[in-house]
Amino acid sequence: MHKISPCLWFQGGNAEEAANFYVSTFRNARIKDIMRSTESGPKPVGRVIAVMFELEGEDFLALNGNPEFAFTPAVSMFIKCESQEEVDHYWDKLMDGGRSLACGWLTDRFGVTWQVAPTRLLGMLQDPDPVKADRTMKAMQGMIKLDLPALERAYNGE
């Protein structure tokens, strides 16, 4: 069990729908528990209050909250992808009803922002050769969904 886990506050009463969507998107994922309102609860009896779910070994809590708080890109979920196929998988799934931002960022249909990035990119951007790192940064800044082969070509000066 992790000591710290994100709690995602959903405004529209769609925490369970969102948790099910995320569980269907990630390969190693599951719903762990669903908390429902009881006689003494704040919502009608049986209504979902929160859903505990797991994505790739990380715990999340989806909470059906009131409308006063909304998601912003100031907090995002970062997905480390080993290949372009993995980037494409997560990008395509999370974009269903969502909107693209830039440089591998997107906001899904529930308002949660995600960064879908190849792990190789971080190494290219931190290369001790500033010319390689700069070429990679410029290529990335021109992309919406990240294209690993194009980033590698930029990095290699091709």
Rank of each mutant, 00 (worst) to 15 (best):
I4C: 02
P6M: 00
W9H: 03
F10D: 01
G12C: 02
N14M: 03
A18F: 00
A18Y: 00
A18L: 00
F21P: 00
T25Q: 00
T25I: 03
F26S: 06
R27W: 02
R27M: 11
R27P: 07
A29N: 04
R30A: 05
I31S: 01
R36G: 04
S37G: 08
G41L: 05
G41Y: 06
K43Q: 15
G46S: 14
R47K: 15
I49H: 11
M52W: 15
E54M: 13
L55F: 09
D59C: 14
F60Q: 10
A62Q: 11
G65R: 06
G65N: 08
N66V: 15
E68W: 11
A70N: 13
T72Q: 09
A74C: 13
I79H: 04
C81W: 00
E85Q: 05
V87S: 00
Y90P: 01
K93Y: 03
G98W: 00
R99T: 13
A102W: 05
C103F: 01
C103S: 04
L106T: 04
L106H: 01
G111A: 10
A117E: 10
T119C: 13
L122W: 14
G123H: 06
L125G: 08
L125S: 09
Q126H: 14
A133I: 12
A133M: 10
D134T: 14
T136H: 03
T136R: 04
M137P: 10
K138F: 14
A139I: 08
M140L: 14
I144L: 11
D147H: 12
L148S: 11
L151C: 11
